[in-house]
C-alpha cells in the first residue's frame, strides 16, 4: 500500500481541507478584527469630534461585518451543494 504516490489517500481533497481551513479560519477572523478595530476607533474619533475619521472607521466596521457574514453564508451555501 503506497500512501504518498498512490491515490490511497486523496491528498488533493485533504489539501483542499487544509487550504480552505487556513483561508476561512484566518481570513474571516482577520476581516472581523478589522471590523472590531473600526468600531473601537470610530467611537474614539466621534468622542474627539473628528467626524471624518469617525465615519471612515464606522464604514470599516460595517464593511468588515458584512464581509464576514457574506463569507459565512457563502460557505454554508457551498456545503449544501451536492457535488
Amino acid at each position: 500500500m503506497r500512501i504518498l504516490a498512490d491515490p490511497v489517500v486523496d491528498w488533493s481533497a485533504l489539501g483542499k481541507v487544509v487550504l480552505y481551513s487556513l483561508i476561512a479560519g484566518v481570513g474571516v477572523p482577520a476581516v472581523y478584527a478589522c471590523a472590531v478595530l473600526g468600531a473601537g476607533r470610530s467611537s474614539d474619533a466621534a468622542r474627539a469630534h473628528r467626524n471624518g475619521a469617525a465615519t471612515f472607521y464606522a464604514l470599516l466596521a460595517l464593511i468588515g461585518t458584512a464581509a464576514c457574514i457574506g463569507a459565512i453564508v457563502y460557505g454554508i451555501v457551498l456545503l449544501t451543494q451536492k457535488s
Binding site: 479560519g25 471590523a35 472590531v36 478595530l37 473601537g40 467611537s43
Partner: peptide
C-alpha cells in the same frame, strides 16, 4: 490543522486590534 489555524488567527487578530482600547475589543469579539 486546527491548532495552527487558531494560532495564526489569534496572532493576526492581536496584530490588528492590539492598539485599540480593551473594552470595545472584548465587546466586539
Amino acid at each position: 490543522l486546527c491548532f495552527v489555524v487558531a494560532g495564526i488567527a489569534i496572532i493576526v487578530i492581536y496584530a490588528i486590534v492590539g492598539r485599540v482600547r480593551p473594552g470595545p475589543v472584548t465587546r466586539g469579539f
